[in-house]
């Protein structure tokens, strides 16, 4: 449980500290989703429950859809502006 909490903290810090690199912000969101899924999986496995694995499949699919939309927005932004820097 400590592993997933520290991983979530690392994801939050990566999201805050890199306000300019938008690829790294999407990577930080992926790390946070990994931490949440690890927390759900580990606690449901230690309670000998099956619902956690079902929900982890939902979370993985939502994470895939989210990263796809984020990256396509990134490509459209690059096509409009010519750069991906958030701060001008």
């Amino acid at each position: 449980m400590n592993l997933s909490l520290f991983l979530f903290l690392i994801g939050i810090l990566g999201f805050i500290l890199n306000r300019k690199n938008i690829i790294l912000m999407i990577i930080a969101i992926e790390i946070m989703l990994l931490a949440v899924t690890l927390l759900v999986l580990i606690s449901s496995y230690s309670f000998d429950d099956n619902v956690g694995q079902t929900f982890s499949i939902y979370i993985i699919s939502i994470a895939g859809a989210e990263s796809v939309i984020g990256l396509s927005i990134l490509v459209a932004y690059y096509r409009l502006r010519g750069t991906i820097s958030l701060r001008t």
Binding site: N18, R19, K20, N21, I22, I23, L24, I26, I27, E30, L34, I60, A63, G64, S67, V68, L71, L74, V75, Y78, T83, I84, S85, R87
Partner: peptide, 27 residues
């Protein structure tokens, strides 16, 4: 299968497709 096979390859594809100057995204 999902992350390394699909999402990381998608990230690498986007990074290779757009032309990033490293001085733009470094702070």
């Amino acid at each position: 299968v999902i992350y390394v096979g699909a999402i990381a390859v998608l990230f690498l594809f986007v990074i290779m497709m757009i032309n990033i100057k490293l001085t733009d995204i470094l702070e």
